[in-house]
Write a protein that binds this DNA or RNA. Structure first.
Length: 846
RNA sequence: GGGCGAUUGGCUCAGUGGUAGAGCGCUACCUUGACACGGUAGAGGUCACUGGUUCGAACCCAGUAUCGCCCA
């Protein structure tokens, strides 16, 4: 191909992305891999990015980290199984589709053939059938995924683009349904009607892993109940739940309330008799130490209700409004004041009612307190009793919890301390994993229910789809033994209306990507996978749920290594997020600095460590890439070529260089084996700069010749260039491939990772370092004299420790030529090496 | 409140028992036949604090403070 006149980074991405695609440089060779021993394959469980989201520079960093490992393993001769996935099912896609097209899903509507959404989203969202809605989801995600793929190619990910999966695809849905049926058959999945955390905006249940606490303003309202011996005062932040009150509770050791335990009190306004009970979860020093239990205000209420077997008086409905009818035992007349109101306005009205009745003591006391939210929601969660599907995860079973903690110990965590995130989460679980969502774009449960003569479903005996029929959509497919016209009619059947949570599908990414459902032979080979890369924020969700599924189905961990990336944070160390407005768009950065520069910066972020985004750092990576171009061009111009090998290296300084490089190769290899790409890059980079600044400067004059001494330098330059290009290839795929292409056959990314054994071991690296130190002394003299580095030196005396004198002598010719020294004297002396320089009278003229 | 991590020159970070390191930035100089998207040289730090172990501590131990993340 030859060396260009003026090498440039511009255009390298487009050129090599196209070439790699055309040459299938990164294709996984299934046949060869399956024929080879398992350890010759490296399989990666790539995180499927949320297709409806946007990628920021943090994604670029973490996916680059994985790609560096993939490229290293490939150069180590492994068959790298490196698929890409898109997480396109679930609520985020629904929201994007609603906003993008201006529609909303109304499952009661029927399908409209050839439906086209409004050209511009209107003010009101247009209702469409579920099938139409899902079609729009499919359409938009397909577009989004194409854009993502283009970005990833530009980032240089060495993904096998013939192996892309989607979490909504037929095979993903089939795998999710099949795994669910297995879980169900083994008793690991179950349905239960139970109080559930509920988002009133999205009108769906949410799981523990999707919760977050937010500090919100509230107020303690002090309310009197009528007790047997006078009023009993409680404090609550949610007076509107008074009609849902089923008991008062205090700590069993709280002396103030001993006389009340076992008695009843009457609620204000409603006059309902409720018992006073004792429970250890009551906090004596909070408020008055006695609290009302409502069904349900928070998770403590649920615990109390369950453990103390209290009655249920539910008042909050699915839409976040108070139910139209009073709960059992509550007078309808009073309750009618609140019925149908939102929680917010019910509270206002309730406070008025308490004021009127004289049961509100004093004024409400403003406080701020943590309130549970769905992580994607904007209104506080309520607790609503609904029928939901769960998968056991150890939250209610100590043995299972211990088994899952033990699984975590089978995984090698990078960095090691991320293991604690996993263990803390598992040990803190307080319930099973709720997997059903009352949404539309997701994997439906492969389940129907028979309807009795009254049209009521028989929940106890779900009709399951056969595995051979998966994937099924129970809303359009029909269970065995029924016909479509029996849908929804007494004596007929109904579909399970829910879809699975996104994590219930993405927790199967190793299975989906490896062909569990579609290519058992491949699956048996690549699973358990070698590497799960991901960020630390989803250890509790994606990582944990994947371990759960694999534990149940295979009795094994899904992967042997979990490599955890940190975040890219803004200069104030805040996490990037859209709402903070501090997101850096990747394409802009890639265009301005070049992919290799951005990847170089990414490689500088150690595994697990958050890293501030700093544009100034990008320039440094760019400088390195440019230097590689220029030194490559220069070295090849000096006569280095692919035909020269280490066996032609004879001069001590040349041998010394290559022996030093052997040490660098060993260090970089050890670091890469430990996933410490940052360290590997550091040692390669440190060597490279001294190679450019010192070694090349020292030998270039000699290398211009054509004798054996010249040949030695040319061979050392060729070997050093080849090795260094390969050391940098995982981090800087574009520039290394470019320089490689000037003088080598094939792709550098298919070349073997360098081995120290390919380099001469007998050289003395000190020849290079001592000669470089002497040269630095000469340079300093020139710099102090404000002379050009080309200034002639009349005479220079190197005073070196006796042991170093022969080293300087061994590099005498190179040193004299590089320093333009007319008379070079080397003498032994005390202390470190010094150089006395006498500059020639006038600067040299060219 | 619990857990984890961090604290080293202005900035970003290496450095896990033996005389404080790198890059960026800064200052001065050099336009050399690979590179001005360059090169050379230089200044700059009582390693957060307090105790302890040790011949010797940035590093080990105990505690404190500040910051960040996760969880309650």
């Amino acid at each position: 191909m030859g060396v260009p006149e003026k090498p440039t980074l511009d255009g390298l991405e487009a050129k090599w992305v196209a070439r790699w695609a055309a040459d299938d440089t990164y294709a996984f060779d299934r046949t060869a891999a399956l024929a080879a021993p398992r350890e010759q394959t490296w399989s990666i469980d790539t995180p499927p990015p949320t297709a409806s989201g946007s990628l920021h520079v943090g994604h670029v960093f973490s996916y680059t980290h994985t790609d560096i490992v993939a490229r290293y393993q490939r150069m180590r001769g492994k068959h790298v199984f490196y698929p890409m996935g898109w997480d396109d099912n679930g609520l985020p896609t629904e929201r994007r589709v609603q906003n993008y097209y201006g529609v909303r899903c109304d499952p009661s509507l029927s399908y409209e053939e050839g439906f086209e959404p409004p050209a511009k989203p209107g003010k009101d969202q247009q209702p469409v059938s579920r099938r139409n809605f899902v079609e729009l989801c499919e359409r938009l995600t397909a577009e989004d995924e194409l854009a993502f793929e283009q970005l990833w190619r530009r980032v240089g990910l060495s993904v096998d683009w013939s192996n892309v999966y989607r979490t909504i695809s037929d095979s993903s849905r089939a795998a999710a349904q099949r795994m669910f049926l297995h879980n169900l058959a083994r008793g690991e999945a179950y349905a239960q009607e139970a109080p559930t955390l509920w988002d009133v905006t999205f009108r769906t249940a949410v799981a523990q892993a999707e919760l977050e606490d937010r500090e919100r303003p509230g107020a303690y309202h002090r309310i009197s109940f009528a007790g047997p011996a006078g009023p009993v005062s409680i404090e609550t932040t949610r007076p509107e739940l008074l009609p849902a009150c089923v008991a008062l509770v205090a700590h069993p050791d709280d002396e103030r309330y001993q006389p009340l335990f076992g008695t009843t009190v009457r609620t204000p306004v409603f006059g309902v008799e409720v018992p006073v009970v004792a429970h250890r979860l009551a906090e004596p020093d909070k408020g008055s130490g006695i609290a009302m239990i409502c069904t349900f205000g928070d998770l403590n209420d649920v615990t109390w209700w369950r453990e103390l077997q209290l009655p249920t008086r539910a008042i909050v409905g699915w839409d976040g409004r108070l139910l139209p009818d009073a709960p059992p035992g509550v007078p309808a007349e009073q309750y009618a004041e609140l019925a149908g109101k939102t929680v917010f306005s019910a509270q206002q009205r309730m406070v008025e009612l308490l004021r009127e009745s004289g049961d509100l003591e004093g004024e409400p006391k403003a406080i701020t307190h943590p309130v549970k939210f769905y992580e994607k929601g904007e209104r506080p969660l309520e607790i609503v009793t609904t029928r939901q599907w769960y998968i056991r995860n150890g939250g209610r079973d100590a043995d299972l919890r211990d088994a899952l903690v033990a699984r975590g110990q089978e995984i090698q965590w990078v960095p090691e301390h991320m293991r604690y995130r996993y263990e803390n989460w598992v040990e803190g679980l307080n319930g099973d994993w709720l997997i059903s969502r009352q949404r539309f774009f997701g994997v439906p449960f492969p389940v129907w229910y028979a309807l009795d003569g009254e049209g009521e479903p028989d929940w106890s005996a779900p009709l399951l789809a056969p595995e051979s029929a998966l994937p099924v959509d129970p809303s359009s497919d029909v269970p065995a033994g029924y016909t479509e016209d029996q849908r929804g009619v007494p004596g007929g059947f109904m579909a399970d209306p829910d879809v699975m949570d996104t994590w219930a599908t993405s927790s199967l990414s190793p299975q989906v990507a490896s062909g569990w459902d579609t290519d058992p032979e491949l699956f048996a080979h690549v699973f358990p996978m070698d590497q799960r890369p991901q960020a630390h924020d989803i250890i509790r969700t994606w990582l944990f749920s994947t371990v759960v599924r694999s534990h149940f189905e295979f009795g094994a961990v899904p992967w042997t290594h979990a490599t955890i990336s940190g975040f890219v944070v803004d200069p104030d160390r805040k996490k990037m997020s859209k709402s903070k407005g501090n997101v850096v768009t990747p394409i802009d950065v890639l265009e301005r600095f070049g992919t290799d520069a951005v990847r170089w910066r990414a490689a500088g972020a150690r595994p697990g460590a958050d890293s501030p985004f700093d544009e100034a750092q990008m320039k440094v990576g760019r400088r390195l890439a440019i230097k590689l171009l220029n030194v490559g061009k220069f070295v090849l111009g000096l006569g280095a070529s692919a035909g020269l090998g280490a066996d032609q290296v004879s001069e001590p300084i040349d041998l010394g260089l290559l022996t030093a490089l052997a040490g660098v190769v060993d260090e970089a290899t050890a670091a890469m084996e430990a996933f410490n790409y940052t360290r590997a890059l550091e040692v390669a980079e440190a060597f490279f700069w001294s190679f450019c600044d010192d070694y090349v400067e020292l030998v270039k004059s000699r290398a211009y010749g054509s004798d054996d001494a010249a040949r030695s330098a040319q061979a050392a330059l060729a070997v050093a260039l080849s090795v260094q290009l390969r050391l940098f290839a995982p981090v800087l795929p574009f520039v290394t491939e470019e320089v490689w292409s000037w003088w080598q056959e094939g792709s550098v990314h298919r070349a073997p990772w360098p081995a120290a054994t390919d380099l001469p071991a007998g050289g003395d690296p000190a020849v290079v370092t001592v000669a470089a130190a002497a040269l630095a002394g000469v340079r300093k003299a020139k710099s102090d004299a404000k002379q050009s580095m080309r200034a002639d030196v009349e005479s220079a005396t190197v005073t070196a420790p006796a042991g170093q004198v022969p080293l300087v002598e061994a590099a005498r010719r190179d040193l004299a030529e590089a320093g333009r020294i007319a008379l070079l004297t080397v003498v032994p002396g005390e202390g470190p090496l010094t150089v006395d320089v006498v500059l020639a009278e006038a600067p040299a003229q060219a």
